[in-house]
Design a protein around this nucleic acid. Structure first.
Lengths: 232, 232
DNA sequence: CTCTGTGAAGTTGTTCACAGCC
DNA sequence: GGCTGTGAACAACTTCACAGAG
């Protein structure tokens, strides 16, 4: 029972879902084995990177052959905690919120949107794509009842911080924020931000520079609030 | 006329739009000067990081005081190439594509969506939020005519690669891809990928680990295709 | 005394290069 | 001969710590 699996770098964590995506794709095309080189091409890195990344989870390659796709998918899913389905809610059923409610691809991947919330009376009580829209006041009660893994914020910027606090208070375990502000959650709740204007602006820079190709991958950590430095 | 401004790290580039966002926010609240510490809190990093990042663009802080917000906004906008408005098209007017077409926040920030494209005859010829939807066959002609800075891909995964190639071929200068596949563009065209399932899966990992807070920021580079290493 | 700008130190992440197994 | 796994070298990025300006 060896428990001390080496610490997996954040940068690696961010790539694992991409490997998984590619592997599932390969598998559905009938392939059963894949080399690090092939996987690397797929996500725009090199084979050494792939081998190093995968080596953090264990040794499941076969020298001279490659990786058995089915087994790798299993290992990655396990490692990423995808074994059980996750429950997701969407707060803010505007254009983007509606688009997310309407997309069925998440469910296939184990992320089920179980409720929507909004303040607009014309939306409350309706259902979209089989998902009920509730009023904000019900958030706490519903979250307590069904247990929610991920809360998506698709409200206007000014409401985002307030919503984030309500989500945490209600017991939502992590947050995906689409509002164009940084939200501050006092707790140790994982938060990821997706700001499309930021994406545009980064592209704008490379455009104006006449720069080379870039592939975006998530990254950047922070602990709690203050930015306390760690041990030294 | 000193031209050899130091190379700005990718990690810094990815943070600049966040500083800009925060500065605009501060400014609209009537503030005129800001310290590195305050800016750092805003995006979840520390003051040394902020000062180092800004120092790559020049010296515009005032010792003992801080940064003049208006000036910093100007410098950042300039640096990111936001001085002239950018033209954007959306290929794939499904749920997500429609949401993007309907959102007016981009225009305010200088990114104007000038056309949509789809294969669905029921959408072609319509207009959404003042943007005309064209058939895919018109892509080349329209892009040639108006000049397009950013092409957004919101098609199903199977079509994304094909669309990417058409965009490049038509002369679109950069790509923002929402389809859940890695696209391969032969040219030196900047590409950024946003895959919401990937975001979910990264959150899933931190959830299952009971891990600390993370803030996502884009990152990861690649040159052209092969992954050729650089000079040694 | 406050807050910036920046070399230097420290940390994290990537690539090399080769031993080991198929 | 082909491909993985991995220490060691290298490169990128972050944080420290302090000189210097207001």
């Amino acid at each position: 029972m060896k428990m001390v699996r080496k610490k997996v770098p954040k940068a690696t964590i961010n790539r694992l879902p991409l490997y998984l995506r590619g592997l599932v794709n390969f598998y559905s095309k009938g392939e059963r084995v894949v080399s690090s080189t092939r996987l690397a091409e797929l996500i725009g890195t090199n084979s050494a990177q792939v081998r190093k990344d995968l080596s953090f989870l264990g040794e499941f390659g076969i020298r001279g052959i490659g990786y058995e796709i089915e087994k790798l998918i299993e290992e990655l899913s396990q490692f990423l905690g995808l074994a059980q389905a996750k429950k997701v809610i969407v707060v803010g059923v505007g254009r983007l919120g509606s688009a997310l409610l309407g997309y069925n691809g998440f469910k296939e991947r184990g992320f089920e949107i179980v409720a929507g919330f909004d303040v607009d009376p014309s939306k409350i009580g309706k259902e979209m794509n089989g998902v009920n829209i509730y009023k904000m006041d019900s958030l706490r009660k519903i979250v307590k009842k069904i247990g929610v893994d991920i809360g998506i914020i698709t409200t206007p910027a000014q409401k985002a911080q307030e919503v984030a606090e309500k989500l945490v208070e209600a017991g939502v375990k992590s947050i995906l924020n689409f509002a164009p502000v940084s939200i501050e959650v006092s707790d140790k709740i994982p938060v990821r931000n997706v700001d499309l204007s930021v994406e545009f602006q980064i592209l704008s820079y490379y455009l104006s520079k006449g720069e080379k190709s870039i592939i975006k991958r998530g990254n950047e950590k922070r602990f709690g609030e203050g930015g306390k430095p760690s041990i030294k």
